[in-house]
Simulated scan of single mutants.
Amino acid sequence: MCLIVVGWHAHPAYPLVVAANRDEFLARPAVPAHWWTDAPDLLAGRDLEAGGTWMGLSRGGRFAALTNYRDPTLHRPGAPSRGTLVRDCLTGNDDADRQLRKVAEVSAQYAAFNLLVSDGRQLGIHESTTGAVRMLDPGVYGLSNHVLDTPWPKVKLARERFTAALGCLPDTDAFLALLRDDEPAPDHHLPETGVSADWERWLSPAFIRAPGYGTRCSTLILVDHGSKVTFREWSWNERGEFASEVTHRFTLASGR
């Protein structure tokens, strides 16, 4: 997952709104969001290589999502899959703060990452590169492959467009439009993360099309004050074209 924008109590009718793109190698197999047979209360896509997930929601209202931290010098060959951290947060029972602090105790074992977790009452983040765990106030937050709200061009633009899209709810077309934006940032605004200039350019838009790599799916999650959830996910093929769509609607078991 390489771009997540979260509206946390930023809309009067929807306490949680999430718009996200998962970017991954095209050859890595995965399946779209579904209710897991081995964890029946978990709705998430699944990485078929390591068995974990990048983002999901539980019937009880737990939310978790992870992005990798882009810095080739922090690469850890043989490290365990970070997707298991997301799964464990979604199936755990601790509140968000305690859940993230438990992750922080072991995060050095993994390649660098950022992890967002909500228990339905609070939303927090752990950044493994800084070691920080913090709970977030109501607002709109953007996360890519650096720490929260790093002002990369795609993060800044996505937050601005997400905030505008909140005003259009319940219409959701603007959220998909921001996730499908494949316009690269100007070269003079590109970050320097240790990859080549070509890769910085390929990775700079919200929607990525790069050699052997790209945006594999886009997800929109809406949770309203009546505990009704809409979880909508679009999958894209190797050319970045529409491949499939799934929509799940349900009411949180917690009656949030």
Rank of each mutant, 00 (worst) to 15 (best):
M135F: 06
P184W: 02
E160Y: 05
R161T: 08
T163G: 14
G124S: 09
A185G: 06
R159Y: 06
R180H: 13
A185I: 02
R121P: 02
H146R: 12
G194S: 10
A165E: 00
D181E: 14
L148D: 00
Y141R: 04
V147F: 14
D119S: 04
R180C: 08
F162P: 00
P186Y: 10
D182W: 06
A164G: 12
L178F: 05
F175L: 13
T172L: 11
D149Y: 04
L176N: 04
D137P: 03
T172F: 07
D181L: 08
A174I: 07
E183D: 12
A177M: 11
M135G: 08
T150L: 00
D181V: 05
E183W: 08
L166V: 14
H188M: 10
K156E: 15
T193Q: 07
L143T: 04
A164W: 09
T129E: 15
L123N: 03
W152T: 00
L157F: 06
A177N: 09
V140R: 05
V140G: 01
P170V: 11
R159V: 15
P184E: 05
F175K: 03
A165D: 04
Q122Y: 05
P191F: 00
P191H: 02
V147Y: 14
E127F: 02
R159W: 03
P186D: 12
M135Q: 13
A174S: 14
P151G: 08
L143M: 10
D173C: 13
S144Y: 01
E160W: 02
G167W: 13
P153K: 04
L123E: 04
T172D: 14
C168N: 13
D187V: 07
L190W: 07
P151H: 06
G194W: 08
L136I: 09
M135Y: 07
T163F: 08
G167P: 12
S144V: 02
D187S: 07
W152C: 00
I125K: 01
H126V: 05
G167L: 15
P138V: 09
G139W: 01
L190T: 05
V133P: 00
L169I: 13
G131F: 08
H189I: 04
F175Q: 04
G194I: 08
T193H: 03
G131V: 07
G139I: 01
P151Q: 10
F175E: 05
C168G: 11
T130G: 12
L136K: 09
K154Y: 08
L166F: 14
V147G: 15
R161V: 06
P184N: 04
D173I: 13
P170C: 14
D187K: 05
P186A: 12
I125T: 02
G167V: 13
L178Y: 00
P170T: 13
R159N: 06
L148A: 01
D119I: 02
G131W: 09
K154S: 07
A174G: 10
T130I: 11
P153G: 09
G142V: 05
P153C: 12
E127V: 07
W152R: 00
V155R: 04
P138N: 13
V133F: 06
T150D: 03
T163D: 14
L179F: 02
V140M: 10
V147C: 15
A174C: 14
V147M: 14
A165W: 01
L169F: 10
L176K: 09
S128E: 02
P138R: 11
S144W: 01
L178R: 00
G131N: 13
P191N: 04
P170G: 12
A158F: 03
P191I: 00
I125R: 01
K156Q: 15
T150Y: 02
A174R: 09
C168Q: 15
